[in-house]
């Protein structure tokens, strides 16, 4: 019984970690229709930004906003220099971001080498019966939930959010009423990247910064966004919990390989029945 509870709790934290890594990708996909294949490398960017900040003596908690800001600025640059010029050319956008992902990976190897010291995880644990769980990963459940709520409010209640949704739903109409859709898109992409940077920074104690760390997330993140479909935010949350959490539960009772197989098999099954994502027939829009 204790085991079951411990497993459920840690699986929820696994799903939350996955969701944290995915939200930025989902926002960019949902609002711009762009799949950013360099998303994983933006996570890495955030992780290195936070790591470098802590090495300069900045407390970890403060290094997170620094990382978010830097990643946002970098994301805005990428949007202005590359993404904007390829707007409407979906495949070309994917290829360009793919090229970017490899270039960023190699840059990280050159600048930071392949290993950097980690920052360690807070040595705190809680006990559930005879099982002990590290606190920091559990904290990610709260982080993921706050991220979801924050992004939801940003997109529904802020002026920017309304503009962004208007720009994607009826671009010509948005232009006609004076919304500068290219500025909105720059901001959207920057926010998506900022969320990736946040993920890299906040997950740094769990996932050490390495040039290839983005790779560890992208496969599952991409699949979650694809399975989620057009209602990206709620869809991603649901598929992250279902697929990521499910895989984690399976891993806990069987083997890690079985968990991975579950994840991919479920993806195939869902796409067979919902080729455009599980949310393709939902009514609401976020």
């Amino acid at each position: 019984m204790d085991y079951l509870f411990a497993v459920l709790l840690s699986s929820l934290s696994s799903a939350s970690i996955l969701l944290i890594a995915t939200i930025g990708l989902a926002v960019v996909f949902g609002l711009m229709g762009v799949i950013n294949l360099a998303h994983g490398e933006f996570i890495m960017f955030g992780a290195y930004a936070a790591l470098t900040a802590t090495q300069q003596g900045v407390p970890f908690i403060l290094s997170i906003p620094i990382a978010v800001l830097l990643t946002m600025i970098f994301g805005a640059l990428v949007e202005i220099l590359i993404i904007r010029r390829l707007y409407g050319r979906m495949f070309d956008t994917m290829l360009a971001t793919w090229g970017l992902s490899l270039a960023l990976y190699q840059c990280a190897v050159i600048i930071f080498g392949t290993v950097s010291p980690g920052i360690g995880m807070p040595q705190m644990s809680i006990a559930i019966g005879e099982y002990s769980l590290a606190v920091y990963p559990l904290l990610m459940i709260v982080v993921a939930a706050s991220m979801l709520i924050g992004v939801y409010y940003l997109l529904t209640k802020s002026v920017y959010g309304m503009k962004a949704r208007a720009a994607i739903q009826v671009p010509h109409m948005a232009r006609a009423i004076g919304i500068n859709s290219s500025n909105t898109n720059t901001l959207t992409f920057a926010i998506g990247c900022g969320l990736a940077g946040f993920a890299g920074a906040v997950l740094l104690p769990i996932v050490p910064a390495t040039p290839s760390m983005g790779f560890a997330f992208v496969i599952k993140s991409f699949l979650i966004v694809v399975v989620a479909g057009p209602v990206t935010l709620a869809g991603s949350a649901l598929s992250a919990i279902g697929m990521g959490g499910g895989a984690s539960v399976i891993s806990s009772f069987m083997t890690s390989v079985a968990g991975d197989i579950f994840f991919f098999a479920l993806t195939l099954l869902l796409l067979r029945f919902y080729p455009l994502g599980i949310s393709s027939r939902w009514r609401f829009k976020l």
Partner: peptide, 16 residues
């Protein structure tokens, strides 16, 4: 040694 970097940038330039 920088093949990956060069190829990545090449791809971006080609596409654009």
């Amino acid at each position: 040694g920088q093949t990956t970097l060069i190829l990545g940038i090449t791809l971006i330039i080609l596409v654009m």
